[in-house]
Design a protein around this nucleic acid. Sequence first.
DNA 1: GCGTCCAGGTCTACC
DNA 2: GGTAGACCTGGACGC
Length: 336
Amino acid sequence: MMASNSKEQERTKEMKELEIIWETRLTPKPPFSFEHTVQKDTRFGANWYWLTPFESYEQGIMRSGFRVPETQEPVGLLVQSKGSVNQPSLEIKFFSYHSLSNFEKQQAMAVLRRSLDAERDIKEFYELSEDYPVLKQAKQDLYGARIAPLPDLLSTVMLSIVLQMASEGRTEQMLKLIYNNYGKKLEFDRHEIIVSPLAEQLRKVSEEDLRTKCKLGYRAKYIKGAASLIAEGNFPNLVNLETISSDDVKRLLMQIKGIGEFASEVVTPHPSFPVDIWSVKIFCKLFGISESRKPREMISLVKEYAKKEFGVWQKYVYEYIVNDLENLSEKFGLDL
DNA sequence: GCGTCCAGGTCTACC
DNA sequence: GGTAGACCTGGACGC
């Protein structure tokens, strides 16, 4: 009887809205644009959401969420810019069913700083941009935007797999079905968001369920395989991958079935240029690279060009262009 | 309404 | 080691 009541209380608690458990502030290095960092061009951006495909950005307020590393506790998040691009200041409210320990607070803030790339000095990138008309324009359009990874390895790997062989609409469909079916729904501040499923949970889902409920097709076995590998706990997390050399990270990631050259470049925390068959033509046109071979063969040439010209800033170059493509296509006469 | 084709990548069998 | 073909699914297109 007691156990039953306790379960009932737990269910009721889980269903009610989360409460504010911690308020704090974050001061990123200027120039920093909160809007351009969390709000991407939904038509072209590879990472067209900030932390989860089920988040809400209205009137300068972002409501989103993630799981605290180590404990995997889901937290809701409300972030609002209270400063300017040159004097940035963010007001942050965390929502949860439980209070967070000091360790969890530190972990949560570390995720947030990383997901905003808040501590990077991007002046060098902007200096480099002056030498390329297309980058100069993108810098002007997206001034202060930061390029940042998703909050955890599993969500990044899942994104890289559903990006393959799929239009933007189809990618979004698969991703939202995964989160809808297996993610954690959080209600707070009269909004509902969904954070990433747990690897442990996804590994237990049958391949057939993933295939049919999430319309993943042949990707179902890759998602399940990746979740199993991550759940085992022996694979380095995103933070640990930063401490491993870029080549080794790539080799490690490509050991996961379904992660090839392109997907490893999407996932790696190191500088990369995840150009694919769709974007390779665009980069050739924008940077005046001669399209001397078939598009698939041009991919490695464009990547070499990006590595040589942009070095540690290649991911910034890639994302600034992809996220500003609508403006750039008009100004530079691209036929998208 | 129905059939066919194709897509922002990766794996595998075959040579 | 290099490469052609298969792979889920859904949208676009032609009839």
